[in-house]
Design a protein around this nucleic acid. Structure first.
Lengths: 180, 180, 180, 180
DNA sequence: GATGAATGAGAGTTCATTCAT
DNA sequence: CATGAATGAACTCTCATTCAT
């Protein structure tokens, strides 16, 4: 791939994230092209379908998340790393309707080539370690955590959502996740 | 209103609920008309705008919910009525993406003519009664409950969702909502 | 025809004149029905086609005009009667786009059953009498007068039209119509 | 702009002028597309709104007119240049209902970016020059001229209009515009 | 005769996708 | 490889007209 092509790809991804994040996945591909400063044809050359483009920005998001998780895993305090990750994700979700929606769809796809797997595995690692150290109750597994996590991310998209509400909601959810 | 008009209105609402539930609120009004067995013009006579139609099915849903709540309020066991309502709502949410989405939007609209208000008030009643009887922690109010409730409804739309998962997720959420 | 039917016919005509006059002939028949206080079906029973309804209000207008002309013909001052009629028609034209437009169409229709004929004949009478008495130049006939009259009515629909402008425009036109 | 785009733009304008001229401004955009030999989307790419398309053909007309006026202004015989322009405009109006209608609307719009201004200014120049040389009566200004001009153009749309009638009508109008 | 609900063709407009330049 | 003009199906919405009530 030529240098300019790679540069264009990155600009398209950034533009798509901004546009779809702001206006939902119903925004037009042409607007993405305009923001990226490329022709519409260039967008379709890199992502043959609008859906491909949407998937790509989810993938990018997920990879960033998985990376953050690595840092948390490497650090101490295993009981709290899990909660820190959870809170961080909810924090980032606010205002990104399109991405949260798509992430939900992607999480369901068990295809082994799915980049979401990296993210899922990171969560599993955080979870099992936190459980081993008594930070999280023992009677739940990854599916419950994923469901509660994504549900809370969706909640973060509500209109009245702010830092104070976020804190209280997380208190509820975290109390539910801790051992009794 | 003539008998046939009322019949058609009901058929259109039923069709709209089915179509939008299955395909999301992006589905076409024409498909609703086809499923209802009426002309497209008839749909627009009853609901002058697509948005009106969407609002109407949310309203219908919400009124059904508010009605169910009345029953729960009238019964004994105030501490558990709240949780029964919560569980019931999550139960019904599964598979109704469009409605849950719209409900989230509607919940934010504080317009006093909003039919969602009936539902919100019912929740507040259930909540405060449950708190008075020690069934729910005291340090939270309606906004947190609404957020957690809608978030859990969203979670119920996940692909892997089934009765077992629902039970475990509700266990987590309910433990978080109960006094420590 | 039953009494209520006749009453309805009159109310529909009045409503149609008001609606089409205000919003142009593109206004919907349903609005006419609403203003007339009858069902849409009743409108179509009396006037099987929208076009029929439009024709009917032009006919009514034209008959009123022809009647006014009779009065002018009966009175003295033959040289000025013509100009009085001309000015009166322009006066009435202001703000009645739909009717002036339709009148133009109707005037072209030479069908002998056309009610516009009564109006045309009245104009011819006024014109020839005024010419005989030296009030109007001799080298013109009804077609020129009709054209200038309708043109001036159209001009009266312009946005800036007011009484002062009307007077000055009529001065120009009347000077052109008088013998040199 | 690419060569094919410019070619298409021109073909669309030509088609629009023909279609709207023949059938009035109520004709469908689709018909314009068909006549131009392009897809409906192409029409909307060039003119995002039907109104834009209508404005464009009026603008084109008006620019043509303003250009012609320059020639007349440059030539001698100031008293007759005004009448030549007037006659020329009426001549061209015949059969172009949509354009005359829209021109009337546009003339009312005093927005300084309005291309009609070029035309209005040209008329004012012709008029004041003709008045200075005694070709046109002194007691009238641009508004009266505009009204009479547009009114006569409307008259030129009548069904019976032909060269002979046009000549006689212009004789009337011009006599009215000349000093007594 | 009156009503107004139902109809469906057709309007303007948008947008993912293709392909000539 | 990049461009952006062209495409046309699909969408929401309107309205003259019909017909069951």
């Amino acid at each position: 791939m030529r240098a300019d092509a790679r540069r264009n790809r990155a600009r398209i991804l950034a533009a798509a994230e901004e546009v779809f994040t702001a206006k939902g996945s119903g925004a037009s591909t042409e607007e993405v092209a305009r923001l990226a400063g490329v022709g519409i044809g260039t967008v379709f050359r890199h992502f043959p379908t609008k859906e491909d483009l949407l998937k790509a920005i989810v993938t990018a998001s997920v990879l960033r998340l998985a990376e953050q998780t690595q840092t948390l895993l490497a650090e101490g305090e295993p009981q709290e790393a899990f909660f820190a990750f959870f809170a961080g994700m909810v924090e980032q979700a606010a205002g990104k309707k399109a991405i949260v929606d798509l992430l939900g769809d992607a999480a369901a796809d068990l295809d082994s080539a799915n980049p979401v797997n990296a993210w899922r595995q990171a969560i599993e690692a955080l979870l099992s370690r936190a459980q081993r150290f008594g930070g999280v109750r023992d009677d739940i597994g990854p599916p419950e955590v994923l469901a509660v996590l994504l549900g809370t991310c969706q909640a973060a998209l509500s209109v009245g959502w702010d830092d104070a509400l976020q804190e209280r909601v997380l208190t509820i959810v975290f109390d539910g996740l801790r051992p009794r």
